[in-house]
């Protein structure tokens, strides 16, 4: 940061960059030209356009940003706004999404970024051309898993009938044995199921990658998450969805439920040189 920015004028405006698109595609889209949303502008630089809006630099300044981020209302509003602008763009053209809160001090800085990283931005845009990202998560229902296992596992089936027939102390012991057996079967099944899901889905996608599982207190589901993945698929994604439906059918009896989200801008398919993970 330079000394000049330390004495920010309250009214100084910067540019919030939502994403980058190809200029020819963007200019061919009349609805984009009419405006994505209030105050969203397309800043053209060579073959690229930045989808951006003017924001108060004071609002996004390093010194005040932590305060804003602690404000749940501000946070939710701004995160949703970021995504809504990109989703609107994605309806018409391919777009490389930027990370939340990417702000330039002025238009010249924004243009300089588009010019300096032109080749790598273009290559990344070519890769996601006509594509969208979808998310697939798998959850496991323990009861259905146990019931499914019982069909193919004689020991489990036998134990189940003993549990329902047994009474008192013996019934308790049998039930515990059954629970332990199901738990150990589940242990191995988690990884196996995740592998099967990913293998089948990535085969019908342009690209795909497993993501970190979401902690239950955040996913707010009772069932345990066993897989979380992102796939790059054609915007017209009939093939992928057909395979997903058939996969869901095959796994239902084993207690697995699949959940599809998206279409998203291709957040997870931005090349490493543009979007390294936090380290």
């Amino acid at each position: 940061m330079t000394a000049a920015t330390a004495s920010l004028n309250r009214n100084d405006l910067g540019w919030y960059l939502y994403g980058v698109a190809a200029a020819d595609e963007a200019s061919a889209s009349t609805s984009l030209a009419e405006g994505v949303a209030e105050a969203v502008e397309l800043v053209a630089e060579g073959p690229l356009v930045g989808v951006a809006s003017r924001v108060s630099l004071a609002e996004f300044d390093e010194t005040t940003l932590p305060e804003r981020l602690r404000d749940a209302v501000w946070l939710e509003q701004n995160i949703r706004a970021h995504e809504q602008v990109l989703e609107r763009v994605l309806e018409d053209v391919s777009v490389l999404p930027c990370r939340f809160c990417t702000v330039y001090r002025n238009e010249a800085e924004l243009r300089r970024f588009l010019a300096e990283r032109r080749d790598v931005l273009q290559a990344a845009l070519d890769r996601v051309h006509g594509m969208v990202e979808v998310g697939v998560k798998a959850f496991i229902d323990r009861d259905r898993f146990a019931a499914g296992r019982a069909k193919h596992n004689d020991v489990i089936r036998q134990l189940e009938s003993q549990v329902s027939a047994a009474e008192g102390g013996r019934g308790y012991m049998e039930r515990r044995r059954l629970e332990q057996l199901v738990a150990s079967e589940l242990e191995g099944f988690r990884g196996e199921a995740a592998g099967r899901i990913h293998t089948r889905l990535v085969a019908v996608a342009e690209d795909g990658l497993p993501l970190a599982l979401q902690p239950p207190e955040l996913s707010r589901r009772e069932e345990e998450m066993v897989f979380n993945g992102a796939y790059l698929v054609p915007a017209e994604r009939g093939n992928f969805e057909a395979e997903l439906a058939s996969l869901a059918e095959d796994l239902r009896d084993q207690g697995i439920d699949l959940e599809l989200t998206g279409p998203w801008p291709a957040y997870n398919f931005v090349p490493e040189e543009l979007g390294a993970e936090w380290t």
Binding site: G19, E62, L65, P97, R99, V103, T261
Partner: peptide, 29 residues
């Protein structure tokens, strides 16, 4: 869910050099 959004908009996408971007500390926040 908002979580699905947050995981994407905070951890993925184009990261830029210079000017204002989120710091790791801010993401934790």
């Amino acid at each position: 869910t908002l979580l699905e959004l947050v995981d994407r908009v905070l951890n993925k996408g184009v990261v830029l050099s210079g000017d204002i971007t989120l710091s790791v500390a801010n993401v934790d926040l």
